[in-house]
Simulated assay, not measured.
Amino acid sequence: MSDTAVDVRQRIRGLLVELSGSDRFVDGVPDDVSLREAGVSSTALVSLLVAMEDTFGFEWDDGVRPEVLRSIGSLAGHVVALRN
């Protein structure tokens, strides 16, 4: 399994497509844009975080910094950092 930032971002985008049922939304969201500003609800974010745990094989730490949860890029950076 490849864990480069690009691969992880693509996998996160795939999870968002699965959760939303459409790739239209996901295709229009740059990696560094706030998911909240892009229209991702709190419920959808929690679903994404759970799906990421299953996909990448880790559990979110209660002390994770809020900025880690901000964007596709920051989420991917966190996963890559956990793998190194």
Rank of each mutant, 00 (worst) to 15 (best):
V26I: 14
L75Y: 05
F25G: 05
L16A: 00
S2Y: 07
G63V: 08
R13D: 04
L82A: 09
V68G: 09
R36K: 14
I12A: 02
A38V: 03
V17I: 15
D31Q: 08
G21A: 09
S41Y: 07
R9I: 09
H78R: 12
L45G: 02
E59K: 12
L19H: 05
D7Y: 08
F56S: 00
A51D: 02
L16P: 00
V17H: 06
L69M: 14
G73N: 10
V26S: 06
G21C: 08
L75M: 13
D32S: 12
G14F: 05
F58L: 07
G77L: 05
N84V: 13
V6Q: 15
G14W: 01
Q10E: 15
D62I: 07
R24F: 13
D31S: 12
H78Q: 10
V46W: 04
G39Y: 10
Q10I: 06
L82S: 09
N84E: 15
G77F: 09
F25I: 11
A51T: 04
I72K: 01
P66Q: 13
L15P: 00
R13N: 05
S42L: 06
D61V: 11
V8L: 08
S34P: 04
S47V: 01
A5D: 12
V6M: 11
G28P: 03
A38S: 14
A44H: 04
G77T: 08
D7H: 12
R65L: 14
P30Y: 09
G14L: 04
V79E: 02
Q10A: 15
P30T: 11
S42G: 11
I12Q: 00
R9Y: 03
A38G: 09
L82M: 14
D61P: 11
E37M: 12
D54Q: 12
M52T: 03
L45K: 07
F58P: 01
L48G: 00
I72T: 05
L35Q: 06
A38H: 04
V8E: 02
I72Q: 01
R11T: 13
I12M: 03
S47K: 04
V80L: 07
Q10T: 10
S2P: 14
P30L: 08
L15F: 03
I12F: 02
L48E: 01
S71H: 05
R9H: 08
P30D: 14
L15C: 03
V6S: 15
A76M: 10
G28A: 15
G57V: 11
S41D: 11
D7N: 12
L45T: 10
H78F: 13
T43D: 09
V6F: 14
L19E: 01
L45C: 09
V79D: 00
L48Q: 02
F56T: 01
E37A: 13
V79Q: 00
V79K: 01
L45R: 08
P30G: 10
V6K: 15
L45N: 02
V80K: 05
V64F: 13
S20W: 03
G63C: 06
G73Y: 02
A81G: 06
A81P: 01
L82C: 08
A76F: 05
N84S: 14
L35Y: 02
S22V: 08
L82P: 00
D61K: 12
A44L: 10
V17A: 05
A5W: 05
S47I: 01
D62R: 11
D54C: 03
S47E: 12
P66W: 08
G39T: 08
L69Q: 06
V68T: 15
D23S: 15
